[in-house]
Design a protein around this nucleic acid. Structure first.
Lengths: 243, 243
DNA sequence: GCAAATTTGTCCGTATGTATC
DNA sequence: AGATACATACGGACAAATTTG
């Protein structure tokens, strides 16, 4: 029966909050250095184990970034935890392997559709030309150069929402794209015809944006995601039949 | 000079992937038990420290759930890591404290706006009545009963996107609401008039949905978020003036 | 209700790998 | 290259929480 307070909350969790408090109070910014592990131990009254576990939690959330042999720093606060979490969920998906993927495509189209008017009005000539060049790249590179293809596709969707001036939307958009790119390969049956259809729809999207035609922009968006939706529903049908 | 392989990747990270692999290969589902720490140590060839740090990382991502004195289980795979990450970013926000909040409101309206047609067509009479009851609750409970007010508000937005059948959209919607609820209190100046305006807009939203009027639904959405936007831009103006 | 068994939480000491100067 | 500072990893011991007999 020592007089020590039987802290209801786990010490590790208090260390997590202590580090967060320190970052906020000192108004630190991403990349700024944090105290070393021994310093954190003394400052927060915990052992190395507890401090290390707390740091790993914050590292997983990208609130903290650890560089081996160098030090601990404030993280970038990116959406990497969302990507990790959603990716694993997509790979797990008990029952229906592709439900998450279908939902994901919905959300991706939702974001671009919901921002359609702003995208159309704010895309400048230079950005439209850049989009056009990406479409050309996609058209030229077949299934032979997968690497360049997926990279151009990623860049296209990132550039599409870039002029919004909403950093959160940009990061969410690329995060959802990343998850799709990791989960989708389990989706075979994607033909060259599908690919061509998708690229053609991208061209229509750029044309509609250049013309300032919001309804056409939305229509092209629907056509762009149509092939993926077909493949997903076919895969789901196969799964259902197998069960 | 031990014969151990000088793993170029961190051992801790390999343990993380090993646990993930185990969950996938065994097709475990949320709530299923995982091996104990000593068992994981032997299975993955790592010390308890490394295993524990790996488990904490997976716990932060809600891929694993740890219960003290009980065991380790497969997590719920919720979006809690997104909430944690975004909340901290909102509290940090160097330079402009309310940029993240403004972006957040944009995204919340974006989701509801982008799903407008589907929401209007799929909302059944029972769900419309439930929404109406929530609006009544919001109207009756003033600033006096904050608890019930915010709870009803949360329920309203959750119920709005529920009939879509897209679990990801539902979880994203509530996640963004949660982050707003945590970050927004730093935003004072919210008057009773603002509150009344927001509640009235919610009534309009329900009316429009009941009438199947998509344009009116969208218009009401804009009116619903208008007061919050005003408060945010005022707060940003105050911040700018202070700097 | 008590006590034992199981499992996670915390601490300490030590040795190793890595990056910087 | 050597020295230093730091994170990484190990193993053992005890504390705290939970379940079970």
């Amino acid at each position: 029966m020592s007089g020590a307070k039987p802290a209801r909350t786990l010490l590790r969790q208090e260390v997590v909050e202590g580090i967060e408090r320190h970052i906020l109070q000192e108004r630190l910014r991403p990349g700024d250095p944090l105290p070393t592990e021994p310093a954190l131990c003394e400052a927060l009254g915990a052992s190395r184990s507890s401090v290390r576990e707390a740091v790993k939690i914050l590292d997983a959330l990208d609130i903290v970034e650890v560089r081996h042999g160098h030090g601990t720093y404030v993280g970038r606060l990116s959406l990497s935890p969302l990507v990790e979490s959603l990716t694993f969920r997509g790979l797990l998906s008990p029952g229906d392997e592709f439900q998450v993927l279908a939902d994901l495509v919905d959300v991706r189209e939702l974001v671009e559709r919901g921002m359609a008017d702003r995208i159309v009005t704010r895309l400048g000539p230079g950005q439209l030309d850049a989009l056009e060049r990406l479409v050309a790249t996609l058209r030229e590179q077949g299934a032979g150069q997968e690497r360049g293809f997926v990279e151009a596709d990623r860049a296209f969707h990132a550039l599409l929402v870039a002029p919004l001036g909403n950093e959160l939307v940009e990061q969410l958009s690329t995060a959802f794209w990343d998850v799709s790119a990791i989960v989708a390969p389990h989706l075979d049956g994607f033909t060259h015809a599908d690919e061509a259809e998708t690229v053609a729809a991208k061209q229509s999207i750029v044309d509609a944006a250049r013309a300032g035609d919001v309804p056409a922009f939305m229509k092209s968006l629907g056509e762009h995601y149509a092939p993926v939706r077909r493949r997903i529903s076919e895969a789901r049908a196969r799964n259902a039949a197998r069960a």
